[in-house]
Design a protein around this nucleic acid. Structure first.
Lengths: 133, 133
DNA sequence: AAAAATTATGTTATAATATAACACTACTAC
DNA sequence: GTAGTAGTGTTATATTATAACATAATTTTT
């Protein structure tokens, strides 16, 4: 077992393993049907695992797709500060790890001068592999 | 009828009127139940109107809430370049109209140097009225 | 180590969100 | 004036997510 996953429960680990095996974001019911052989039988088991994995920063939800993707940033703790680029042709999503943009958004203040607690940014475009085709 | 809404169909106008009357984002089925007296009876009628209103830039979808809000930016044509601040206590959402941030995101390039076609940014925090309470 | 509190699991049922498919109508545009 | 496009109405169904309840495992406190 991965040392950084030590604190995960059985179902959380099963769900995370599956998500990590996929390059693209996966849907909750796709997770469900893929882990039924491991003893996870019903939607609440998947959604509960997802909730905890998101809390722990292991997984992010791609809001515009209702899908879930593993965080590739080592020891990511930023539950609520995510930046994705999403291909509208093939639905692939990759996390953007751009320090300057990250800082810009983290420091951004509302009209009253107060910072926000978090953000979710999704860029839409054509991914490199779809551009070639 | 509002001149800038001239090209809207009957159902589109009914749905937009309802959304505009609400300060907060509204849910599709809440729209449905509110416009049944106007002759809209079924979900597809609402979702089709929403799709067109979004295309026309009159309405934006708040992805993290599955809700819909009227665009307050005059003659907004930016279907796919939205910035919201969302209160996680009361679920209110307001569109942020910050030219500098807008430009920053519009000019942002992926690792291959290509611009994106659009983006959706949602900031999360406590709105001013919830801060007071 | 026993009691209490927290976290996780398993299960059934159902709520909430969204679309497919089909028949028909209205409105452009040439 | 007919061909094409956009809009409407309807039924049924697909997809996404949670409520509610019973039980078990783990951790924390005493």
């Amino acid at each position: 077992m991965d040392s950084k996953n030590k604190s995960l429960s059985k179902n959380q680990q099963i769900v995370l393993d599956f998500i990590q095996r996929n390059k693209k974001p996966v849907k909750a019911y796709s997770i469900l049907s893929s882990v039924q052989k491991k003893g996870i039988n019903a939607p609440p088991q998947v959604y509960r695992a997802l909730d905890k994995l998101i809390e722990k920063g292991k997984v992010h939800k791609v809001e515009s797709q209702n899908s879930f993707v593993a965080c590739k940033i080592l020891n990511c703790e930023t539950r609520h500060a995510t930046i994705f680029s999403i291909c509208y042709k093939c639905d692939s999503a990759s996390e953007i790890n751009d320090t300057k943009l990250f800082n810009y958004l983290s420091e951004f203040k509302d009209s009253g001068g107060a910072k926000f607690d978090g953000y979710n940014l999704e860029f839409f475009g054509t991914c490199n592999s779809c551009k070639k085709n």
